[in-house]
């Protein structure tokens, strides 16, 4: 598994590409919510997917969180899945911001909507910088409020080898909500990604 890891130069490169892509996603979110989003340096970490459920179980002691998944497929074998994780108290804040009703069906619709905006804008930004282009599967709800999210995350993560864990904090002026984004990619896609990063690095 160690062969999948990145050099410091590759990590820095990926972090900067993520930063640019996040900037575009935040701009979209700011327009969507009609507010200013305070951007923070994205904390990114590459971890083996089996470590993910434990990481989030430690980070969020409560059992309930909503998970929204979006699969993506790019050129040259670059593919994977993004998962957005929303804690319940943040779901309420988002519903208030967007004016959704407080019931289960509209909550699902709202989280799917906001996840689509954030992840497709983010992934398009990333693809553009890698001179790639992605197509997307329809967003899926992996876990809603009545389920134990850690088990659901473990089930999904086990299909992939490596996870790019991106901690995103979307801090708004009047309200604040946090959500986490995970980028899960299979081993062969990591090798492709490394080559693409080397190509970007070779240009400078």
């Amino acid at each position: 598994m160690t062969t999948l890891y990145f050099t410091e130069e590759q990590r820095d490169c990926l972090q900067e590409l993520v930063n640019v892509a996040m900037g575009q996603a935040s701009d979209k979110l700011a327009r969507y919510l009609d507010t200013l989003v305070h951007l923070q340096v994205p904390a990114i970490a590459l971890v083996e997917t089996e470590q993910l459920p434990e990481h989030f179980a430690r980070r969020y002691p409560q059992h309930n969180a909503s998970l929204i998944s979006l699969g993506f497929f790019g050129d040259q074998g670059l593919r994977g899945e993004t998962i957005m994780l929303y804690q319940l108290e943040n779901v309420g804040v988002i519903a208030q911001l967007l004016g959704y009703d407080d019931d289960d069906s509209s909550e699902a619709e709202m989280l799917t909507d906001i996840s689509s905006v954030l992840t497709t804008t983010f992934l398009n930004g990333l693809a553009e910088q890698l001179e790639n282009s992605f197509s997307y599967a329809a967003p899926r709800i992996l876990s809603s409020r009545d389920q134990h999210f850690v088990q659901k995350l473990a089930d999904t993560a086990s299909q992939w080898q490596l996870a790019l864990q991106v901690d995103i904090r979307y801090q708004l002026i009047d309200y604040s909500f946090n959500c986490d984004m995970m980028l899960l990619v299979p081993g062969e896609a990591v090798l492709q990604l490394r080559q693409m990063l080397n190509k970007v690095l070779a240009g400078f």
Partner: peptide, 9 residues
């Protein structure tokens, strides 16, 4: 020179 391209920013 920034990635934070929000008009407000």
């Amino acid at each position: 020179v920034s990635a934070d391209i929000q008009p407000e920013m």
